[in-house]
Write a protein that binds this DNA or RNA. Sequence first.
RNA 1: CGGGGCGUGGCGCAGUCCGGUAGCGCACCUGCUUUGGGAGCAGGGGGUCGUAGGUUCAAAUCCUAUCGCCCCGACCA
Length: 489
Amino acid sequence: MSKGVTPRSQDYARWYTDVVQKAELADYGPVKGTMVIRPYGYSIWEALREAFDMRFKATGHVNAYFPMLIPKSFLSREAAHVKGFAKECAVVTHTRLMADPDGNGVVVDPDSKLEEELIIRPTSETIIWHMYKQWINSYRDLPILINQWANIVRWELRTRLFLRTSEFLWQEGHTAHATSQEAQEETERMIEVYREVVEDEMALPVIVGRKTEAEKFAGAVDTFTIEAMMGDRRALQCGTSHYLGQNFARAFEVTFRTQDNDQEYVYATSWGVSTRLVGAMVMAHGDDKGLRLPPRVAPIQVVIVPIFRDESRDRVLQTATSLTDGLQKVTVRVKLDDRDTVSPGFKFNDWEMKGVPVRLEIGPRDVEQGVAVVVRRDTGEKQSLPLDQLAAKLPALLEEIQTSLYQQAVDFRAEHTQRPGNWEAFKTLMKAGGFARCGWDGDPETEAAIKAETKATIRCIPLDENPSGLKCVYSGQPAKYEVVLARAY
RNA sequence: CGGGGCGUGGCGCAGUCCGGUAGCGCACCUGCUUUGGGAGCAGGGGGUCGUAGGUUCAAAUCCUAUCGCCCCGACCA
């Protein structure tokens, strides 16, 4: 492995790819656009999944699993939805392979062609609503609050590890309600859950808002989003929650009897976050030494690197081992790196690349004095602390690092967010990179023109918008909305 | 799908113009010395040069075909 990563300032895209691979988060799969999530990357995903899952359950949801293969006909039900996904669906046409009659290898058995082709889910709305039709008869059957953790496939052209791959892992919540109001409350409840996890656990500040007509989910009435700023000042959509109205209920003919014995279509929501969030953490917190993980989701919070010569080996390792045991008792996720095959210097760099929040160095001198060198990954700051105080002090230090990473991200975003007063200032900002908060006249043509001229999109209409007195940054007309614009991933 | 580029040990590349014993760096293995910021030295293993034809005494190199991949332009968590 060559040393280090490409500096961010030199080539941000390459820096990202370098970090993902060198921190052993993921690797490329053999099929274009596919990704192997390696154990270290997967354990980060597990931490995120746990943080979300406990909150889903606390808000009344249950997990279930629906099939990956979907009859092709299901996709022709909801017009807008089809339009959104048809172009990127993988299709299963045959069910068998056979030995190649002309020589080596295998070929598709032409006799195994399916009568109805199957598609691999690009999202599960259709199959879930097919099932909901069978499960819902009465208002007594509502609400249904189901979530599933699954993989999905979208045949993407331009792919990047975690950010956009042909197959990815995610969570999709699909709920059915008796009233529009209840479904809308659910939509907003879940975007708030997303905000909480991303900000509190991932230390990543987000802007909560609604998507414009052009940017919302195919088939949704209303889409809520959380948007974060990455290290190159571009925006990344980190999670979405959709109010689907009765669109899917109509498409799949899901009706229920009300208390008054009327027949009505069910109201729906869906919401999801994906492994893209792992990429978001890399890009939001990483530096030229690699990853910087927020302690709450770091698979390893504290790594202990022993430093010894032959004659001091036993003493140092004994101290390091008992320190490891002691810290594990205060529920710090700690790892003793006792590898004999690499040097301490290599380990320092290795764990910095992997973003471990705190490193403890223990050498012969430290053992003599009963101390350890404590190094923060976020600031690089070093200090010596007595061994017997570590168990008491480390939990607080980890919380401090968590807060510090969040604050650094908040400050960075603030530095690169402006309110451009005119079109020229806006263009300059978009070219330099950053978030623009400004007025929009609400016209889709204006939105399209802005995108065509600057590649910037309306990331969202923030919940705390206030358009009064604002003018549209493009047309100069009175603003109908206050929006956040940026170039996005 | 339009434009540009590349296929040579695990990874990154040189060699191709001008045919003549397949090389370099990293990684890997063994040994010794090392270990407080990516250790040093010595030795070692590993490639039918994307594939298939052709030209030639001889092809990584020339010719033809073919496959695959990457980058840039219209969509997306």
